[in-house]
Structures are given as C-alpha cells and as structure tokens.
C-alpha cells in the first residue's frame, strides 16, 4: 500500500521533471528508447525518493545517464540516435517561401550539431536544451564545474567550426548574419 505522502511528492516530481528527463533521453538515445529510459529513471527515483536532493533534476538526469550507459548496448543506442538526428534535419526540409531562410539556418545548426561527438552534444544540450546551469550540468556528467566550463568551451568551438565549414562548403546556406554571429563568438 502506497502512503499518500511519498506518492504526492513523487507525483509533483514527475510532473515537474518528466518532460526534461524524456527530452534528455531523446537527445542522447533517440525517441525509440527515450520513453523506456525516462520511465526507468523514475522507477529508480521512486525507490530512492528519500535520498533525492532538493534540486532533483540534475540527480534525475544523472540517473538517466547511468541507465543509458549501463543498460543499453552502444550499437542499439547509436542506431536509435542516428534515426533521431536524421529526423531533426529532415523536419526542416521541404519548406519554401518566406520562412525558408530561417528553416535553412535551423537545419544547418542541427546538422552541425549532429556531426559532433556524443560527448560534445551532451555538454551543449544540457545547457541549451535542458536548461541546466553549468554547475548542475557538471553534476550530471560527473565532473567539476571548472572542468565542465573547459569542456563546454571546446564543444562550443567545435560546433562553431562545424557550422563555419558547412557555410563555406555551401552544404548549408547560412544567412550572413548567422555566420557573422558565429565569427563573432571567436573574437
């Protein structure tokens, strides 16, 4: 029999954090595995509700990260993730008209992101997509805040390079102001 207290607390936690945990799982392993990973994460959370820190999200993402690493074969995760990355880029195709430039820019950035390593993509998206502060993102990946800043800086540079190469090659046409902003970030 579940006591009402823990259940209420867990429900609040689920409502507040499930979308973020699911989003993290999609960005690391694709939609095909995300539901499973997110649900498994909350199973662990249910059993460890008393150990949960007040700032629960970094803890939950840390659990999801461990589940991904320990419970899934790397090739299965890669396969699912590749489908996801392809879907992000494809979602921006077949668009014409006034919004085409913006859509092209969006596709270029997502394609550049897709060329990065799994580790770089995680560092960038923890902050940009999952809304974590650097100190909390550091907790998720298990390093010091200082180390996180160093790694994030490198990852950001590699994303900039991937974007610049895409623009120079003409593989993706970036609006000039976007390229400027990329160059700006080197200064």
């Amino acid at each position: 029999m579940i006591e009402p207290g823990p259940r209420d607390r867990f429900t609040a936690l689920y409502d507040a954090c499930y979308p973020s945990v699911y989003a993290y799982a999609v960005s690391r392993a694709g939609r095909q595995l995300a539901e499973e990973v997110a649900s498994e994460t909350f199973c662990v959370a249910w059993r460890r509700i008393d150990d949960m820190p007040d700032e629960a999200l970094p803890w939950l993402l840390g659990v999801a990260r461990n589940i991904l690493r320990e419970s899934y074969r790397a090739d299965a995760r890669r396969q699912s993730l590749e489908s996801e990355l392809a879907a992000w880029a494809a979602a921006s195709e077949h668009v014409t008209g006034d919004v085409a430039d913006a859509v092209t820019e969006r596709a270029a950035l997502l394609r550049a992101l897709a060329t990065l390593s799994d580790g770089d993509r995680e560092l960038l998206t923890l902050v940009a997509w999952h809304g974590l502060r650097a100190a909390d993102a550091a907790k998720v990946v298990g390093c010091s805040t200082a180390t996180y800043f160093v790694r994030l800086h490198r990852a950001r540079r590699r994303l900039e390079r991937a974007l610049a190469i895409a623009a120079v090659d003409g593989a993706s046409v970036l609006p000039s102001e976007s390229l400027e902003s990329v160059k700006e970030s080197f200064r």
């Binding site: 989003a23 939609r31 979602a91 950035l109 997502l110 940009a128």
Partner: peptide, 11 residues
C-alpha cells in the same frame, strides 16, 4: 542552439 530545440524532445 536553444532556439532550434526539436519538437521531438517533448513527450
């Protein structure tokens, strides 16, 4: 990057 967050991240 934050602006191009894919819709597929929403459950």
């Amino acid at each position: 990057l934050a602006d191009v967050r894919p819709a597929s991240l929403t459950p």
